[in-house]
Amino acid sequence: MLLSDIRNILDAKVLTGEDEAALSAIDIHMACGCDLMSDVLAFVKDQALLLSGLINQQVIRTAEMMDIRAVCFVRGKVPADDVIELAKDRGIALIATEMPLYNACGILYDKGLRGKDK
């Protein structure tokens, strides 16, 4: 699923400045909804989207270590500028939706974006 489609489905704002073409170039194969970074670190898959209610630097660091391409912040949370700058520097796209985590994950799952089975 393209990040541009995910942005539309979740009615999300783009925080890291990617235009439509850049969002369409990011193909997401799998998603993970989590606020525990150690659980995210146990989840190894390529081309993943992380959905989280946490908005600190360690979310970006965790995404960096896991080669996660994009992070979606939920419940209308927006991280501080230095967190957004770190993501830009590491090539990680950030989007933000007003939806709560459960709903955002459920809607994406329903549209065909799955998580890791085990």
Binding site: D35, L36, D39, A42
Partner: peptide, 9 residues
């Protein structure tokens, strides 16, 4: 609260 300390390290 910062997302760590879940006993998975």
């Amino acid at each position: 609260e910062l997302g760590f300390g879940a006993g998975m390290g």
